[in-house]
Amino acid sequence: MGKIFFIFSLLMFYLSNAQSQMETIKKGSFIPLYGAVEAVKINTFEMDVYPVTNADYLEFVKKYPKWQKSVVIKLFADKNYLNEWVSDTIYNVSFKPNSPVTNISWYAAKAYCECQNKRLPTIDEWEYVAMANESQIDARKVKSYNDYILSWYEKPKTNVNEIGSTYKNYWGIYDLHGLVWEWTADFNSIMLGGESRGDGGQDSNLFCGSASIGASDLMNYAAFMRYAMRNSLKANNTSKNLGFRCVK
């Protein structure tokens, strides 16, 4: 009996600490799809193994009422923030506690990470970890890696799946592809056209120095989609397929 209790409590411990599990990402360098002509150096950091879940986020809003859906101010979140939650501290019955939390604004994601003494990853950090498959640090040229991401883009409602349901990559990180898109700290550094009005080209009057940055490999369609998505976002936006994880 005691043994069962012990295993049970271990299990509960594991579940409740899912959010605090992190893995070390060793330093390195890579040329991202966008934003650099030369290799970008990444310093060693730690990344959450899983995206932040509904259960994690519920804990957060209980502790910090400022981020509850009826309390949060318009500057920090649009009207769809946590839109399927039935109240400030109850999420939809159809939600699984271990599914990634979505309909979160950038401000909310940033605040969540800061309250855990963590931060949002930069685009470069996120992409650096996300270019790995199960066995290679850089799988961007591997067909199965790209096929996996592209087939995910075609699947609806993957946000209702539970964390850990995709593959564990080289670094021990799950769900960077296959579950939800994720916020990054500097998502608004992508400049594919003018501010919000989308005039298309890289107008040098709109963006000083814009001629020197651009997509280094437009063939990498899967990644290009992520940059285009980031480019289209505003920090108070929330979306059903957009979640986040933290790093430190």
Binding site: L75, M191, E195
Partner: peptide, 9 residues
């Protein structure tokens, strides 16, 4: 910058 909708890199 996000409040101003200014992008930079």
């Amino acid at each position: 910058s996000n409040v101003l909708s200014v992008k930079y890199k």
